[in-house]
Design a protein around this nucleic acid. Structure first.
Length: 397
DNA sequence: AAGCCGGGGGA
DNA sequence: TCCCCAGGCTT
């Protein structure tokens, strides 16, 4: 059947046909590799066999076999489905797939169609480069392969829009040969089963997962195995509520053994939060030690809470301080204080202005302003302000 | 290595 | 809201 080569090298030859080739051989030297001392998974033959057997047996009982592209599966049908399924869920894809195959039943028809016609079938599916690449690839396939999709991972990968995983899917599901895949479902299953640490977008993690996939994909029935892995990922080993009791490999799953399957895969590190700064006026009544507070507007950060008068620049703060009392300069520094919100970091620069009794009394008495004495509870405080006031009051005592 | 593409759905 | 989804390509 399949000319099965286990642990097939993942090397790629330079890609002449691909218009936008640019895939370099890794050729990463020294440092990056050495720094990464994650343990490479070396699975015993028994482990691999046990895993594949369980997954294949699960496929026979529960695997999906009625998806549109599984009927009369062919390299072409699998190709189209795989492209549509990139970053797109099955239920979304199905109607698009039906319409597409209706209009473009063969590579030749697709190649001859206009790009407008092809993209029209893609409207609403997103990632429109997929449609353009698909069309371009169809023309390459007609010109260079006589209208038949190539049947090796290496050749398929040279076509625009086809990466290693999609190529592996076409080979295993469409051609019937051995090839590993690594899509989001497989990644999640493997990350959990082997408690692979780190975010799987990282190169080192990807590499490790590919090695696992290569090792686990059995020589026979690779297509069924791959389909089953995707099905397990999509229907059993789900992101938030994995149904471990229904999983064919739960007995050997390390994440489950540790009691927390959802701790893997690790999340993508959150994007660096923007940094902002502000200046806060700490106006202290020299005679009483009271501090001027200002109520924040109802909307926005710290809405309705008591805070210190806040400014976007030190200049604005200085102006306000001088308005209170002409003799406040120089202002004493007191911070800075760091505070993190869900969406940004804030650095607060508090500056102390000591106000005379006379000036203090001249301040307008409004609902938004209050002179605060240690121990008072005018209302809610913004957390960093409360901390700052505590510290300040202690130092004054 | 990080950013980009995109619309939809779940938590 | 944020994150993720049968990824691949560009910078």
């Amino acid at each position: 059947m399949s000319p099965t080569v286990k642990n097939q090298p993942t090397r790629r030859s330079p890609a002449p046909a691909k218009e936008v080739p640019a895939k370099e051989a890794p050729a990463q030297i020294g440092n990056a590799q050495i720094e990464d001392n994650r343990v490479l998974p070396a699975l015993s033959a028994a482990q691999r066999k046990r895993f594949a057997k369980a997954v294949l047996s699960w496929f026979d009982d529960f695997g999906r076999k009625n998806l549109p592209w599984q009927q009369d599966a062919s390299p072409y049908r699998v190709w189209i489905s795989e492209i549509m399924l990139q970053q797109t869920q099955v239920t979304t894809v199905i109607p698009y797939y039906q319409r597409f195959m209706q209009s473009f039943p063969t590579v030749a028809v697709l190649a001859k169609a206009s790009q407008d016609d092809v993209l029209d079938h893609w409207t609403g599916l997103g990632y429109y480069a997929r449609g353009r690449n698909l069309h371009n690839s169809a023309q390459v396939i007609v010109e260079q392969y006589g209208g038949e999709l190539p049947t090796t991972v290496d050749e398929l990968e040279r076509l625009p829009g086809i990466g290693r995983s999609t190529a592996g899917a076409i080979v295993s599901l469409g051609v019937g040969n051995w090839a590993p895949i690594l899509d989001g479902n497989v990644k999640r299953v493997l990350c959990r089963h082997y408690t692979v640490d780190g975010w799987y977008g990282q190169t080192a993690v990807q590499k490790q997962l590919w090695q696992l996939s290569e090792q686990l994909t059995p020589a026979n029935r690779a297509g069924n195995f791959n389909q089953a892995m995707m099905d397990v990922g999509a229907t059993v080993c789900t992101r938030s509520n994995p149904n471990c009791s229904a999983c064919p490999v739960s007995k050997t799953c390390r994440a489950l053994a540790r009691g927390k399957p959802t701790d893997w895969p690790h999340r993508k590190p959150s994007k660096e939060k923007p940094k902002r700064q502000c200046w806060m006026l700490v106006a202290i009544d020299k005679s009483s030690g009271e501090v001027l507070l200002e109520k924040r507007p109802q909307t926005g950060i710290w809405g309705g809470l008591w805070s210190l008068p806040q400014y976007d620049s030190v200049g604005e703060l200085g102006d306000a301080a001088n308005l209170l009392d002409g003799n406040v300069v120089p202002l004493e520094k007191l911070g800075p204080i760091e505070h993190t919100f869900t969406h940004f970091h804030l650095t607060i620069h508090p500056l102390i202005a000591r106000i005379s009794r006379q000036s203090r009394d001249a301040i307008m008495d409004t609902e938004q302003l209050v002179w605060y004495k240690h121990g008072d509870t005018p209302g809610g405080f913004a957390a960093p302000v409360a901390k700052l006031l505590d510290k300040l009051m202690q130092s004054l005592v």
